[in-house]
Each structure stands twice: as structure tokens, then as C-alpha cells.
Amino acid sequence: MSIKHGLLALLQDGPKYGYQLRGEFETATGATWPLNIGQVYTTLTRLERDGLVQPAAVRAAAQEDDGRSMYEITEAGRDELATWFRTPVTRESRPRDELAIKLALALAVPGVDVGAVVQRQRTATMQSLQELTRLKRNSSDGEISWQLVVESMIFAAEAEIRWLDHCEALLLRHRGKPRPAPQTYAVPDEEEARS
């Protein structure tokens, strides 16, 4: 999720200050994605530059004593938000999977105990899953946005554990097989380079 679209969604029901947006964002996501206030104001500045938000119409009432402005969503912002809600999230738009990259590199680097890397990750993910399960059990049923976020994190942790089990099984099947030799690339000598 982009901060940009999160702030636009929160501005749908009326003008807000940056600090209000930060608090409402953290409440809506169960504080699983904490924002610092600098991120909020930087994003609001970009949204204003792009014509998606504007300072609230009532300028005098929109300023606190310290000069902070209240923002409201524009029609272009509403269109952008509607498009975002209609557009499915694709795998290509998600961030890189650091764990998959880490395991791939561990396989490529001689001397790394890949099985130990997998086991340490499984232990950490299990601990995280247990903590998430406790959080879910202790949350009230009325907080549906928090419940959605925590359940998404639980499902992701469960999927990671299944994937780590798969990785371990794959490593066991390939244990004892020599690693393929790294590819080398011939560097042309000066005469070949000129021709």
C-alpha cells in the first residue's frame, strides 16, 4: 500500500491536519505500519503538487496556532483514489522479497550453511506468528480494520513457514550434488576488441 493512497482515503470524509492523518492511518492499520510525521507532510506536499489535495477551503479555520495547514482531497484526488481501489495489486508492484534473495545468495556463496539460514528464519517466523496470534486473540471483535491487517500478517507468516519447509526439502534432495561452476565470461584481447 502506498502512503499516498492511504492519506487520500483518509481525506475522503473531510479535511484533516497531518497529525490527524498520521493517527488515523495508524489506527486503521493497527499500527502495523507506523508513519513518522515527516513522511506524512512530505507525501502531502507531493499530493498538493500533483493536484490531488489542496489546503482546506476555509484558510483561517484551517490553520492552527503554529501555522500548520489542514488539507482536503480534490476531485482529481477522488478519481485517483477510485482508480486505486479498482486496480488489483500485482506481484510486480510489491517490494522485493529479501528472504528469497538472501537464500539465493546463500546458495551462491561458498561456505554458507543454507540449512542453518533456513532454520534460523523458520524460528524467527514462528515466533512472529505466535506473537501475531496473541495480538489477534487479544483484540476486540469491533476493530475490523485491525483484524484484517493482523490476519493478513498471520497468513503471510504461515505461507513463509510453508515455503521454508519447501526450501529445506529441496535442499535435502540436492544435498551432495556439486554446485554448478560459476559462469565465466571471456574478456576479448585488444586485437579481438578492435575487430
Rank of each mutant, 00 (worst) to 15 (best):
S2A: 08
H5D: 04
A9G: 07
A9K: 14
D13M: 02
E24T: 01
A28Y: 07
T32S: 13
T32L: 15
T32K: 14
N36F: 11
N36L: 02
N36P: 05
I37N: 11
Q39S: 15
V40M: 00
Y41R: 05
T42R: 08
T43N: 02
T45R: 13
G51N: 06
V53E: 01
V53G: 04
Q54H: 07
P55S: 13
V58E: 14
V58N: 12
A61C: 07
A61W: 10
D66K: 14
E72P: 02
T74E: 13
T74P: 07
A76N: 09
E80N: 04
T87N: 03
V89S: 07
E92D: 09
S93T: 07
P95K: 13
D97C: 08
I101Y: 03
L103F: 04
V109K: 09
P110I: 00
V112T: 12
R120F: 10
R120S: 15
Q121G: 01
R122E: 06
T125V: 15
M126W: 12
Q127Y: 09
S128Q: 14
S128L: 14
L129D: 01
L132E: 12
T133E: 08
S140C: 05
I144R: 10
W146A: 00
Q147K: 09
Q147E: 09
S152L: 06
M153P: 00
M153A: 13
A156T: 11
A157Y: 03
E158K: 10
I161N: 00
D165R: 14
H166D: 11
C167T: 14
A169Y: 09
L170R: 10
R175P: 05
G176D: 11
K177F: 15
Y185L: 09
P188N: 05
D189A: 03
E190F: 11
A193N: 04
